[in-house]
Design a protein around this nucleic acid. Structure first.
Lengths: 332, 332
DNA sequence: TTGTACGCGTTATCAT
DNA sequence: ATGATAACGCGTACAA
């Protein structure tokens, strides 16, 4: 007499409805799909039967026949980070325009979960898009045979199809802006998973290029949260009190930095300048608003869907690179 | 080398692989599914064939056989509103725990798009959950026969299964807090779609109960955005300069109100108090931080999935109501 | 207008 | 270890 808690109620099939209505499956099909060649009275009877049995056509059986539903699997790192809803927004819009379904996977930036998500995605979706933490994970996607559009490779994506960001260019804008304001000792709050992140390497490269007084240990890693940013700025200043500006991996960290500075009684931007990356709307709400390297994230989402569509058609998508621009607001 | 012909639109089937590897379909199935009873050499050959044909099993055919994949359709109003990522986070977590897929529909709070989303959802998912703007839209879900867990009915959900919020209780907390601080002339910024929203009606009811100097026209509707809030507070104060506090439909609007007030040179909370609803993390970042009626949104998401699971099992989920609590921060 | 028969791509069962 | 055959639930020529 034991029934498993998770036991799914077995759904009625088209056959059941046919039997109850005293017609053939074909007639049921006609009724539920609103086909023309059917008697009004019969249709009503069939629909009643369907309703009383709580009948819904199986999406699997139906999908088998008409290959017209496309599903995109979207992999993001953390939906709690405002960056990703913004991206999802673009993806959703583009997907809706194409009448695609979007299934969402949140990996928490954990490589293992990414691989897992990729595997389920391969089984449940026609094509994938999103953020992966490393080339190795992307290799897994290739191994599975899922067409996948890589987004924002902080690592070097090489020939991987997808949408890139001109991170080096963006970082250059940020550091140049700080240097132009007279800052020579600049720190960085790094939020990258690995040490080979482009934001980090670009930062160091540009600093060297501009002959700034910046070294490896002026880069402080932090978890990507407001608290992480606040803490990191403290560490940075304790280690090197002479720094007068900081470049943050993203706007969340920048907000945290500003918050940490204010808590320490440091005025922004008068005493200390902060530049973020991403240009999230969020950055405008805080005081002072965050000067940031703006990236059109929604557009990235749309481009990702376009790339996925190409992949699906068996073509190789044109490489696309989104160019950031500097949005000077209050913090630097 | 290994060039995939562009002409091939259709995906390779198990049959194709079988033919190429010179085995039966069954053997291919064994190989790709990692079954035991297969020769290592054969397996390798089959896998090679599969790879070269870019073979991936059809999720439809597979789903037809093993009824073990559950898909939840999540309907949200606007992923650009930080409330919804928060909710999605809870849903995603609970779904992942059950090994469910989550497909996302953003309706932009447009009833027509809600109905549309519901229809697609009915065809693509096993069960739905989310926000619907009206009882009529929910009725459509019932008509379609999709089990659906209704979230946060700002309208009276009656017997509809899902997760409720004790909105009246939350509003009471907010207004009481303002009244206790001596405010008697309180406005409201309404972000509801319709006029019968619980936040609005509760606000008026509590105000009357506390014999405050509040009338129907102290409620100003606004689009749910920061700008909307800023504008609304202006309208409200222009119409009735004596008001000293405002209750906002949600935190976004509250942030907007604060911003509008500051722009007008009004100090918060010294000259004017603002209370929001939702208790988003965002509210802590602005200056002053938003005092708000906190709702455990992620938990709501998890409860929604639980309710959906009940529905799927053919049971009627226990009615659940989430109780908000007041989080006093800086703005009131 | 209605019913019959077959195919969609996969896996399970049973036989070899 | 491998293969033949039968489902799974639905749509659609084709026949009645």
């Amino acid at each position: 007499m034991n029934v498993t808690p998770e036991s799914r109620v077995k759904r009625a099939t088209i056959e059941d409805v046919a039997k109850l209505a005293g017609v053939s499956r074909q007639t049921v099909s006609r009724a539920v799909n609103d086909k023309a060649e059917i008697d009004a009275e019969t249709k009503r009877r069939v629909l009643d039967a369907a309703r009383s049995l709580n009948y819904r056509p199986s999406r699997f059986a139906r999908g088998l026949i008409r290959q017209d539903t496309t599903t995109l699997g979207l992999i993001i790192s953390d939906i709690g980070n405002p960056f990703f809803p913004e991206l999802a927004s673009g993806v959703l819009r583009a997907a809706q325009a194409r009448d695609w379904q979007v299934v969402l996977y949140d990996t928490g930036e954990d490589p293992e979960r990414e691989v897992l998500a990729l595997s389920t995605l391969a089984a449940q979706a026609d094509v994938g898009a999103g953020f992966l933490t490393s080339p190795e994970v992307f290799a897994h996607a290739e191994r599975l045979g899922v067409p996948f559009a890589v987004l924002d490779p902080g690592w070097d994506a090489g020939a991987a199809p997808g949408v890139g960001i001109d991170i080096a260019g963006g970082v250059r804008l940020a550091v140049r802006h700080l240097a132009a304001a007279g800052h020579r000792r600049i720190g960085m709050i790094d939020g990258a998973a690995g040490p080979h992140d482009k934001r980090r390497t670009s930062f160091l490269a540009v600093a060297e290029e501009l002959r700034l007084d910046v070294g490896e240990d002026d880069v402080q890693s932090a978890p990507r949260s407001v608290e992480g940013g606040a803490e990191a700025i403290g560490v940075l200043r304790a280690r090197k009190p002479e720094i007068t500006a900081v470049f943050a991996y993203n706007d969340i960290l920048a907000v945290g930095a500003v918050r940490g500075l204010k808590a320490a009684g440091v005025r922004v931007p008068e005493d200390f300048a902060v530049v973020g990356f991403d240009g999230l709307p969020l950055g405008e709400l805080v005081e002072p608003p965050i000067t940031s390297v703006y990236v059109d994230i929604r557009r990235m989402g749309e481009l990702a869907v376009a790339a996925a569509a190409e992949l699906l058609a068996g073509r190789t998508p044109e490489p696309v690179v989104v160019s950031p621009e500097l949005r000077v607001r209050g913090s630097a």
